[in-house]
Write a protein that binds this DNA or RNA. Structure first.
Length: 699
DNA sequence: ACAAGCAGTTTTTTT
DNA sequence: AACTGCTTGT
């Protein structure tokens, strides 16, 4: 008989030794969640109910009761969210939580895979592909699977990439995915199936992993190597998951796996804020958590501390038409506040002028810029406003939309680093080689084949083997690569060296707009200075691309904290005193892509809900009445279908008039530069009140 | 055979 | 601003 050891049960009931006053800082429900003992628990936390606060105190409680920080895993949706929470927890605990493991599912899986890569047939220096890289890989294969006869009907690389992705993170068969989302491509099923199989083996052969691989291969590792699972899961004494409503099937399985030894898992989420269905998020995960984790308890947080009653009224109204939801009713003890305003503007320019003018007014009333946000459905919706804000010297940061590391010229530089890191990475080689004059897809393919045969000395070149048209530039490339390969340069120095080599190429390739791109190379060098390890830098940039305009913020460090512009998706979890939701148009929110399906429309509705619930004190929803489209010219736009039926008692309809013009004529007055004002339409435009009434607000 | 240049189309949201 | 397909040039 084997000897039996008994481990002392953790003492959860003990009064925490530290100085944190848990019951004073949290309401009874929050306290119950933060001090939860053992076993699975679902925390349903409505918008603004102190979800982050609860998680922060949860971490503090665990550590205070003696759990080692490195035995806590805090999985969040973005890295920003993780750092924010750990910083706050660290404030409560005098820094005692620095060793809590946390981050996104993808980043957490990456650390596991780096350690155990060889067990699933991968080298440990594998490269992480972002969505665009992965589409490039697929495109290489696509050429082999298409013929002239297919014409335009065969799916584009981006679509193909989305197909693979949705198969894998939902765990569905190709046939199902095609039938539900791309019925027009059902005829290609057999070819697509083969192509996707080849995609998988191609990645393995080259040491490449896409985002979905990080999750799926971790699961596969756990399945095929039970001792690895046991090893990893025993280090996860407490698993905390934020934004559980936005996890996909693979992530739910990971949560189950990670908690399989200790069984202590707390998931926090709000079904009404699930907005990542397009990425495979499965609302079913949160709705059926209590079935999947036997005996799971449920705690509901319904006391909203963020918004005024008027804003919550609109939020609740919006939600009444949603289909699937958990029962929950938000309430607040805050005062009624102003009704949210619906402001139609004659056109984009007026909308931008109105928003910037209001922002300046609020600032004069003492609201700091960084307590205000402008939200929109699409990244490009804010271009006009950005111009206007620049003109008025209003500093802003933009979240969502284009990322620095997704810009073509940055990807070029990064491709050189990837080649140095993993010389088997053919996608990176393709990019690097095709920058050279005289080298296109075919030649680049041939050179890559030659390189792969060269074996251990990847950056040596035999100049006799190549055509005179491009040997010289090829030699120069290899010389630069060898120079870096054989040195001990820091990542920043490597980028500096590469930039010097790349600058003339950039002038050639992007001859029209290279001056705009040039400063970005310096930015990149600056970012690289934070890293001492090239591989870590590449992984980090792949998993957490840098927001393009976030760079400008660092330069302004000592100036006024900037206004926030953000896509609704990127604003998840944030709150602001004043919120403007712009471009609230039918076809934008809801997106034109979603009108075909109830499920998709529901998600757009929740998106509106998320936008509305970001606001604490004031909410303005605006849209232009006239839009421009490239081939259709000007046409009359409709406001979002979610807003037209909202009673006026909840959403106040307003009109915008140009000062000095009694009857504003939309088309003729557009170019005037005088300041506009807003009036409430129901009180009659002649005696219209100035909005907003800025006096006596609870700032 | 292959690269480069041109013209026309198309753009959701993100790890 | 990027992607695709077509045409021209080497």
């Amino acid at each position: 008989m084997a000897r039996q050891f008994v481990i002392q049960r953790e003492e959860h009931q003990a009064v925490p030794s530290g100085s944190v006053d848990f019951s004073g800082e949290l309401n009874p429900r929050q306290l119950e969640a933060a001090t939860w003992g053992a076993g699975p628990v679902l925390v349903v936390a409505g918008a603004g109910t102190g979800k982050t606060r609860t998680l922060v105190y949860r971490v503090a409680w665990l550590i205070d009761t003696g759990v080692l920080p490195e035995h806590i895993v805090l999985l969040t949706f973005t890295r920003r969210a993780a750092t924010q929470m750990l910083t706050r927890a660290s404030g409560l605990l005098d820094g005692r939580c620095s060793r809590v493991r946390g981050g996104t599912f993808h980043a957490f899986c990456l650390t596991i895979l780096k350690k155990y890569a060889s067990k699933i047939g991968y080298p440990s220096n594998f490269t992480v592909l972002d969505a665009a890289d992965s589409a490039d890989v697929i495109d290489i294969l696509r050429a082999r699977y298409t013929s002239k006869a297919d014409g335009k009907r065969f799916p584009k690389k981006r679509t193909l990439q989305q197909m693979v992705s949705s198969m894998r993170n939902r765990g569905l068969a190709l046939a199902d995915v095609l039938e539900s989302t791309w019925p027009q491509f059902v005829e290609f099923e057999e070819r697509l199936g083969k192509m996707f199989d080849e995609y998988a083996s191609y990645k393995q052969a080259q040491g490449l992993m896409d985002y979905d691989d990080l999750l799926v291969l971790t699961l596969k590792l756990f399945q095929s190597q039970p001792q690895v699972l046991r090893e990893v899961a025993s280090m996860c004494r407490h698993v905390l998951v934020d934004e559980y409503q936005d996890t996909n099937r693979a992530q739910a399985l990971l949560v189950r796996a990670l908690s399989s030894v200790h069984g202590n898992v707390m998931v926090v989420g709000d079904d009404a804020q699930s907005i990542y269905r397009f990425r495979g998020a499965d609302l079913g995960n949160i709705l059926s958590f209590r079935d999947e984790f036997a005996a799971a308890a449920e705690i509901k947080l319904e006391h909203n501390y963020r918004s005024t009653q008027s804003i919550l009224d609109l939020a609740n109204e919006v939600l009444t038409s949603a289909h699937r939801r958990l029962d929950k009713q938000l309430f607040t003890e805050r005062s009624k506040g102003d009704r949210p305003a619906l402001v139609p503007a004659p056109d984009d320019r007026f909308e931008s002028r109105f928003v910037s003018q209001m922002i300046l007014q609020f600032r004069e009333q003492g609201v700091p810029l960084n307590q205000m946000a402008v939200l929109f459905r699409n990244g490009q919706s804010s271009y006009d406003l950005e111009v206007e804000l620049n003109r008025r010297n209003v500093p802003f940061v933009k979240y969502g939309g284009l990322k620095l590391s997704e810009a073509a010229h940055i990807k070029d530089i990064l491709a050189h680093l990837k080649v140095l890191e993993n010389p088997r990475d053919a996608v990176a080689w393709n990019r690097v080689l095709q920058l050279l004059e005289g080298i296109g897809p075919k030649t680049s393919g041939r050179i890559i084949e030659w390189i792969s045969k060269a074996g251990d000395t990847p950056f040596q070149i035999d100049n006799g083997a190549f055509s005179a048209a491009y040997v010289d530039s090829l030699m120069r490339l290899f010389q630069v690569l060898r120079g870096i390969h054989g040195s001990t340069m820091t990542p920043a120095d490597q980028i500096e060296t590469l930039s010097e080599y790349y600058a003339p190429i950039m002038r050639n390739v992007y001859s029209e707009d290279y001056p705009k791109r040039e400063p970005d190379l310096d930015h990149l060098t600056g970012i690289a200075a934070r890293f001492s390890d090239r591989a870590a830098m590449l992984d980090s940039l792949a998993l957490d691309p840098i927001e393009l305009s976030a760079i400008n913020v660092e330069e302004l460090e000592n100036d006024e904290p900037p206004l926030v512009l953000s896509t609704i998706h990127s604003a998840k979890g944030l709150e602001f005193k004043v919120v403007f939701l712009i471009q609230a148009l039918d076809g934008v929110l809801p997106s034109a892509y979603s009108v075909g399906s109830t499920e998709a429309l529901d998600e757009e509705l929740r998106l509106l809900y998320v936008a509305v619930t970001r606001a604490e004190d004031h909410l303005f929803i605006t849209y232009p009445m006239i839009q421009f489209r490239r081939y259709e010219g000007q046409y009359f736009a409709k406001p979002s279908r979610f807003l037209v039926d909202v009673p006026e008692s909840i959403l106040e309809p307003c009109t915008l008039v140009e000062s000095g013009s009694p009857a504003p004529d939309v088309l003729e007055e557009r170019s005037k530069e005088s300041s506009s004002m807003i009036e409430s339409s129901e009180s009659g435009s002649a005696a219209g009140e100035m909005l907003p009434p800025l006096d006596g607000l609870p700032f």
